[in-house]
Simulated scan of single mutants.
Amino acid sequence: MKSQFLLRAAVAALLAGPVLGHAAAPVIDVYKSAYCGCCGDWIKHLESSGFTVKTHVVANPSDYREKNGIPNDLGSCHTGVVEGYAVEGHVPAADIKRLIAEKPKAKGLSAPGMPMGSPGMDGPRKDPYDVILVEGNGRSRVFSHHN
């Protein structure tokens, strides 16, 4: 009787271990206009990469860029906020995951403009583009380059 209980407990622990061992998916709040289709495609990219997305349709997404310290010259069509960092535009999920893992003293990331070939801006053309890190002091530098 006792050995059956221990066996069942061990099996339950093995089955629950992988489920309980995974960290919760990062949650990203996305502030976008009701009229932007590429924002929805970027959100799908994030979800397929393991993020939980909370979408907020707002009248002026640029208000959230400004509120989170991303300069206007690094602006795009939507702003995300994840773990205290702003994510402006079509930043790849891998870059966001790297940002969260490295935890730099920064305001966030930006893929300025709407680069063709970036997540959500799929099409026949893929332009090279940089993802920019906006540091806590307001300076910026290249965080990653995409071809």
Results as ranks from 00 to 15, higher is better:
A12W: 11
V27G: 13
D29M: 02
V27S: 06
G37C: 10
A10S: 10
A16D: 02
A23M: 12
K44F: 03
S33C: 09
V27M: 14
G21S: 08
C39V: 07
A16N: 04
A12E: 07
P26F: 01
H45G: 05
L6M: 13
C38F: 06
R8C: 07
I28A: 08
P18C: 09
V27T: 13
L46C: 13
A16R: 04
D29V: 03
L15E: 02
L46I: 05
D41I: 03
H22R: 15
K44R: 07
L15A: 13
G17H: 08
L15D: 03
A16W: 07
A13K: 12
L7M: 14
L6I: 15
F5R: 10
F5E: 02
A10L: 11
C38H: 03
V11G: 09
Y31I: 12
C36S: 06
H22K: 15
W42R: 01
H22F: 15
V11W: 09
D29E: 15
S33W: 04
L6T: 13
A24K: 15
D29S: 07
L46F: 12
V19P: 12
P26D: 07
C38W: 00
G40V: 01
I28D: 14
D29F: 00
C36F: 09
R8A: 13
Y31F: 14
F5I: 13
A34M: 08
V11S: 10
K44C: 06
D41V: 08
A23F: 10
L15Y: 10
G37P: 13
G21V: 01
Y35K: 01
A10W: 11
C38Q: 02
A25E: 04
L20S: 15
G17D: 00
W42P: 14
Y31Q: 02
C39W: 02
G21K: 14
A23G: 09
G37N: 10
L7F: 13
A34S: 06
K32F: 12
R8H: 08
C39Y: 01
F5Y: 11
V11L: 12
F5M: 14
A9S: 14
A23T: 09
H22S: 11
D41G: 14
H22I: 04
V30I: 07
I43L: 03
C39K: 00
A16I: 08
F5D: 01
A12K: 06
